[in-house]
Simulated assay, not measured.
Amino acid sequence: MSEVCVIGGTRFFGKLLVRRLLAEGHRVTVVNRGRTPDPFGAAVRRLRADVDLPGELAAAVAGERFDAVVHQMCYTPRAALEACEAFGERAGKLILTSSMEVYNADTFRWRIPAPPMSPFAREEELDAAEYAYDTELPWDDRAWLGANYGEGKRQAEAALTRHARVPVVLARVAHVLAAEDDFTGRLAFHVDRVRAGRPVIAHAAPGRTSLVLADDVAGFLAGAAVSEVTGTVNVASPDSVDVYDVCTAVQHATGRPATVIEKTDPSGHPDLSPFSCPSDFGLTTDRATSLGHRFTPAARWLPELAGKVAAGEGRG
């Protein structure tokens, strides 16, 4: 039995992570602001902190020791440094839930040109230990942070890697889809348009990208928390998809024809698919496979998930 701290854990795959850890018999402490109810009752301990406010996390976890900390709410280098200071050496490892967006060459702002990346990126193509971070950037500006999400995650990785006093796991996660509590609405976007008889807009000759099932993300994070895994790991289904694959799944789920219209410059179009890429952009999963983590192919789960969303199960 391990003592695991989950920062966040009240929505989307964070809830699935907590459920997985509890089901496996681990003791779980959840740290968040306490503003969102959770379904765990007395099964978890709760500590209150806003990880974006200096000193709050350190005060909340003072004197606590954990076998692992899974940080679901780390979007900036400031938050990463707060975690390093708060836990010090009182955690077996720190796990950062990061994003495939760290590989997106279009989102680099402070290192131009971006380092070369493969269309389906490998972990070693972006070394967090060699990437610069800047705590003086306007990270407190929510609009600015939202527009620089990929950069925030890159710099959070860099700060954590440099300053953590315990081993680190950087989980670079693909586009996550779920049948429960999927606040992103990305699959519902397609269901709504197909049902309404509206076309889905895509880039000309759209590229392929990586998806992952929320249950698989939770499974990886839970496994990383209680195993010897360290370092950077891409978390994604092993097969890629494009907007046509998504629309085909939705078409079968709804029984309505799906129309995709390609545009040379679809920027800003309200019907532009969130899974349309101007070129291939995704993840390789060779390292995860070598560590024994096998993610479910999207071809296996996407049609079933589209059916659940079409039936209204994914609107949480």
Rank of each mutant, 00 (worst) to 15 (best):
G8V: 06
A171G: 06
L291Y: 07
D134A: 03
N234L: 01
R300A: 15
L302I: 11
G219A: 12
G316D: 14
T232V: 15
R33Y: 06
L57G: 11
C5F: 09
D245H: 14
W144Q: 05
D52S: 15
G185R: 15
L177N: 04
T284D: 13
D216N: 10
L187M: 11
R208C: 04
L22D: 06
T248L: 14
S227P: 04
A114S: 13
R315F: 13
F275I: 03
S273T: 09
I95R: 03
V102E: 00
P199S: 00
S98W: 09
A298N: 06
Y244G: 12
G316I: 12
C247A: 01
M100G: 13
G9E: 01
P138K: 02
P257A: 00
T97W: 08
G55V: 03
A121N: 11
S267I: 14
G197A: 02
G292D: 00
L213R: 14
L160T: 09
D182C: 08
K153L: 04
R154E: 05
R165Y: 07
G282C: 03
T254D: 05
G307D: 00
L213A: 14
L291R: 04
D265V: 13
A128G: 03
T97N: 08
D192Y: 08
V61D: 05
R300G: 01
E313V: 02
H203W: 15
K263P: 06
G314Q: 10
R193P: 12
E228V: 07
G207S: 06
R109S: 13
V241S: 05
L94Y: 11
T296H: 11
D182M: 04
N104S: 13
A288D: 02
Y131N: 02
A42R: 15
